[in-house]
Simulated scan of single mutants.
Amino acid sequence: MARAKEFDPEVALERAMELFWRQGYEATSIADLVAHLGIAKASLYATFGGKHDLYLAALDRYIRHPDPDPVEVLSSPGPVLPAIQTLLDIYAAPSPFDRPAGCMVVAAAVECPPEDQAVQSRLELSWGSSEVLLTSALLRARAQGEIRADAEPASLARFLLVLIQGIRVVGASSAGAGRARDAARHALDALR
């Protein structure tokens, strides 16, 4: 008869996500994971597979549960540009004390070799979803007269995506916090 799990896999996955987010994939060892998750090495392998499998599951969790949720921020009725500004300001704000700085997707993009198709596909999914969401919001902004009638929402969405990712990189450092806030503050000027 199989023994029941003595830990909650969802809690362990959340903790693994935080550790990978804070340290990166390469710098996180199996020993680090075992210690941080508080589970036996055999349990880790039995539940999640190897380190790479656990990393992919953690990255999936990060992508599925964004904080803030851009859909929630950008889907509210009314003017779009203030909602975009709110989202940018949230991304430019310092990370809460209990959260790692920066963005796990950005860290994965920087660290991941191009041949790791499993990670690359997750990056594309994350960025593609963000582009679709931003394009939709900008189409609404154009229809409401908030941006120029000849504006290209898809191109502007890519601009915002790259800006957001840059804000997350620069804002991860205390030396870059002011730069990230300034970039967020002036972003809408490029849209009008």
Rank of each mutant, 00 (worst) to 15 (best):
I84M: 13
A57M: 11
L37M: 14
H36P: 03
A93H: 04
L188M: 05
L87E: 11
R181E: 14
K5A: 13
Q85M: 00
S136M: 12
F159N: 12
L188R: 10
R192N: 11
H186T: 14
P66R: 07
A143S: 13
G145M: 09
P70G: 10
S130K: 08
A172F: 07
A151E: 11
R192S: 15
A175S: 10
L161C: 09
G128C: 00
L123P: 13
R142W: 02
L134K: 04
A35F: 04
V162M: 12
T28H: 02
S173C: 09
P66H: 06
R140Q: 15
A137C: 13
R22F: 00
A143T: 05
R22D: 11
V106M: 11
A190K: 08
A93K: 06
T135C: 07
A172T: 06
R179Y: 10
V11R: 15
S29T: 15
P100I: 02
A12D: 04
I164F: 07
M104T: 07
C112I: 01
R179A: 14
R3A: 10
E111H: 01
R15M: 11
V119N: 02
V34T: 07
L56M: 07
S29H: 00
R168V: 01
D150E: 13
Y91Q: 12
K51L: 05
P82A: 07
G78S: 02
G102T: 05
L56G: 03
P153I: 03
S174I: 11
L33N: 12
R99G: 03
T135Q: 14
P79Q: 10
I167M: 14
K51Y: 02
I39K: 11
A42V: 12
G38H: 04
G50E: 03
R179F: 15
Q165T: 15
L44V: 08
E10S: 08
P113F: 00
E115M: 02
I167N: 11
M17T: 04
G171F: 06
H65S: 11
E146L: 03
V110H: 04
Q85S: 05
D69M: 04
